[in-house]
Write a protein that binds this DNA or RNA. Structure first.
Lengths: 208, 208, 208, 208
DNA sequence: CATGAATGAGAGTTCATTCAT
DNA sequence: AATGAATGAACTCTCATTCAT
């Protein structure tokens, strides 16, 4: 089947999809526009036809993903703080599991103090945090959660999930090097989700 | 006072110190050897006189810092799991607070699945995790800690601390943009340490 | 006439032609990619667009020329050892005379024991020697040539021609410095060819 | 035994000896002053203490060797053209065999039209050629040699010897690759000398 | 829309050479 | 005489970006 020609929507999407993949795998700097073009099977100049430049493309990639995860979590909201908390954790975890590129990108972005963090992406992050904040605040009002510091709880959840996903290969190697070391390298995403949810409940002193 | 000349130790140290600073601020790729030379007020060729190449320099920078933190924690060990846990958390936190470059570097390193992680640095990381693992294992044996999954606990501690430090400027901005949002931007390092320690205790079901 | 733009074939050729010139004049190391770009009136990056790197370019240059000479000799083959020998000598000599860059490159390449000799070029050299070998073997079988040591005959022919061509300017100067010295600096290529052919016949004890 | 210190003569000699070795092995450009210093086990700055710069050192190396060979040939002169010719060939060949660095250097030097050929070295070369010229001229006068073109005879002798020596490793490989190919890779230096002498006699129509 | 060719500004690294001790 | 440290200019190669078709 001959390669389809002159299909704007398709080309644009191929670029963004493959850009996400590569940015996540290799980071912003180590991903070249040549790489993206090759991976997307698209002419390099097309990237500049559809996106102003590399950093704009990057910003769109990120925004795209962060918004998707936000929508997914919101869609399942139930107006019950505990259930919403569980939903937040499990949806976030499973999304990251399905898109292992995301955690790497987020960590990378957060790790340079937002020096290059695009406005739009920053807004998406705040939106996600705002969501958890709201859930926690409601739970506190209803006396279900105690002593809540939302930012820290947020990082305990998303930071831990992100790190577990990005470090998966490293943890495997570490276990092979030292059998004594329990790096949770065989933990399934379900187990991780469950464990975190349980621990967060303990932290927030939820009565069973 | 005239600039001192021909002082090997000083030159070497200026290179490593300033390299650490820039790597942390801008990441590995975005830090050029020219930047390092300029920042260290040293001839660029000197970097190659003392260090094989850029990535070797990077590895030395990282190893240097990770080992320092490990030593500091070990020095204060007390053979009491609970105290050792507290010591681990507070020493790690205060070290990162004093060296705000470290968390950024660690997150960055972990965020690319160790693609460029130098052997030596990986060993340093395992060493640090091994330390916490040991503390947790002892606490479990003595029935002080319950239901321990060391890797996750490790990430909950260091991941959270790292993120809180690297995101400090971002959280400040976020708070300014939306006063409703509690981003813990005024939390002191002591408060952070205390909160985490308390929450980890709850998670591990330590009896007060 | 305005400078023509965007002509791939032309650009590629300008690079290879000028590279050959400079490599021959100054050797591999002393020829910089900047030199080549400037000489070829081409952007330096184009060299890397068309050729993987400097040494690949070098290999292509050499292979290119060696193959050309081989083809030229083969084209005139006559299945008569003596005529083929004469053809070998005269074609080689006139080719070198037309491409004075070649002998310098060959001598240079042979002078470092093939340390950097690219595979492809080595193959081209063997091919050329194989051709002479075959001619000599046939002549020996037919009892036209006596006491043949092909490698030495080969070097007596091509070595002498190469040296005469590369040293032309030096021999001129030497003659000017010392009129007594007969450096053959006025010898034409025809004379050289003829003299060598005659001497090689004597060496091989060809009956007139 | 501790390394001897402050011995000017020794240091100077170590530099020149090892420089010759490396220049021959890797050529002028590919030999760094660092390499020379390391190989000679001498501080790099010493090279500049004793020799103005790299190219001066190179010139001295070459001159040194060329003069040695000239002296050796002259010492054995017999005032008999045929014997002197044999002596020229065999002394040159055995000298090159003992100093395999020399042919590489000579070929390299001759291959760039003397672009970088130092005056002194050029004089040494002329001296050597002058010697053979004289022998041939005498032989011609005495009607022992016929139809002499000294420059060509010179190149047939030294060119062939030089090439045979520098290409020794290549010829071995070529033979391994293609057993049919007779590259004279097992020819001893004596055989080479004898063969060349015999062929040159034939060329000059010497009566047995 | 799409493409291959072209560009210019650097990046990392090397190296001959010199300086201070 | 000898040394380690320092320098500056170059060199190879890369890459985001643009142009001509």
């Amino acid at each position: 089947m001959a390669k389809q020609k002159r299909n704007a929507a398709l080309t644009k999407e191929k670029i963004i999809t493959n850009a996400m993949l590569l940015f996540a795998q290799n980071g912003y700097d180590a991903t070249t526009t040549d790489d993206i073009a090759k991976q997307a099977d698209v002419n390099k100049a097309m990237i500049y036809y559809y996106y102003k430049n590399k950093s704009t493309l990057y910003a769109e990639v990120m925004s795209h993903v962060l918004d998707a995860i936000y929508q997914e979590i919101v869609a399942k909201e139930a107006q019950n703080p505990l259930k919403d908390l569980e939903n937040f954790i499990s949806t976030y975890a499973s999304f990251c599991h399905k898109n292992p590129a995301l955690p790497a990108l987020l960590l990378r972005e957060l790790s340079d103090s937002g020096a290059h963090l695009p406005q739009e992406m920053f807004a998406n992050m705040r939106q996600l945090f705002g969501l958890l904040s709201k859930i926690l605040a409601e739970g506190e009002e209803q006396n279900i959660f105690k002593n809540v510091e939302p930012m820290m709880i947020h990082f305990m959840i998303v930071g831990t999930i992100n790190l577990l996903i990005t470090t998966a290969p490293l943890r495997k190697i570490a276990s092979e090097l030292d059998a004594e070391l329990n790096t949770c390298h065989e933990c399934s995403i379900e187990k991780i989700t469950e464990y975190i949810y349980e621990k967060i409940q303990l932290m927030l002193e939820v009565q069973q």
